[in-house]
């Protein structure tokens, strides 16, 4: 009895196996190509010295810098980073709405929405660091350049998420208002926005979490925030200050993630 049962198990399809092997070989060769192209020159002789210097800096935080409450101090840099993230998110939250409407199939029709979606993808692909460099040459180095960079770059993600939630909303409400003779702006303010507002807010908060991290790096190119003192500390090998900044950055981002996550859970 047992014997017959076992022999009834069908063989695995062969074509499937060949297909899988081919994919496996392709992936493997891509990975080998990637490893092969990297010219590893060995670790610098100074690496171990630098590393022990870093460890030393890690355990001896720069107390003076933490206490410094002037413009050059840590507190000011952290607040500026948060301010850049909030302002940048706000700018993109507003700007993304028209982009999202333009990309939603149930608002502007299929053909136009494809154009809108493509524009949003283009914006998303453009790195925020390069945007920051462009804006620095416009408004000069400092926080406003960072805000503009985040504000434009985040349209790429927010526009996509907004338009997805507009496309999945209940169309009945829109039809009800149209049947009562409502015009386009009435449809927008009474049918579309009230339905999608909680999701919009939740996505915006999520983007704010991402922008916090981005705002911390914008300073590396001179667009304000904590990145600027951080890169100066690294370049001048002041490891105590470097790790003070990194640790404070981790704590700040974690706290903001926590608060924002709590609010997002309540919203949706």
């Amino acid at each position: 009895m047992m014997q017959t049962l076992v022999s009834n198990i069908p063989d695995k399809p062969k074509a499937n196996k060949l297909y899988k092997t081919l994919i496996f070989i392709a992936v493997l060769s891509i990975i080998i190509w990637a490893f092969d192209g990297l010219n590893y020159k060995g670790i610098m002789e100074t690496a171990s010295g630098t590393f022990s210097g870093m460890l030393d800096g890690f355990f001896n935080p720069d107390i003076e810098y933490i206490k410094d409450s002037t413009v050059d101090g840590l507190l000011n840099a952290v607040l500026e980073t948060i301010a850049i993230a909030i302002s940048g998110t706000f700018v993109s939250g507003i700007l993304a709405i028209p982009f999202a409407l333009f990309a939603s199939q149930n608002i502007v029709g299929e053909k136009v929405s494809k154009v809108g979606k493509f524009i949003i993808t283009m914006i998303r692909t453009f790195p925020e660091l390069i945007l920051a460099l462009i804006f620095i040459s416009v408004v000069g180095p400092g926080a406003p350049a960072g805000i503009l960079a985040l504000g434009i770059h985040s349209i790429g993600m927010l526009g996509k998420l907004y338009s997805e939630s507009i496309e999945s909303m209940d169309i009945g409400v829109k039809e009800a208002i149209e049947s009562c003779g409502g015009n386009k702006s009435e449809v927008l303010f009474r049918a579309v926005l009230p339905q999608v507002a909680p999701e919009f807010l939740s996505y915006t908060l999520f983007r704010f979490e991402i922008n916090m991290r981005a705002a911390a790096t914008l300073g590396l190119v001179g667009a304000g925030g904590i990145g600027a003192p951080l890169i100066f500390a690294i370049r001048s090998r002041r490891w105590d200050r470097t790790f003070t900044i990194v640790i404070v950055l981790i704590i700040t981002v974690t706290i903001i993630d926590f608060i924002s996550g709590k609010i997002r859970k309540k919203l949706v």
Binding site: K41, I43, A47, M54, T217, L220, G227, L230, I234, V246
Partner: peptide
């Protein structure tokens, strides 16, 4: 980017 800046300092 911050990690990279740190690793550049260590490994060149």
């Amino acid at each position: 980017l911050v990690l990279a800046a740190l690793f550049v300092a260590v490994f060149g």
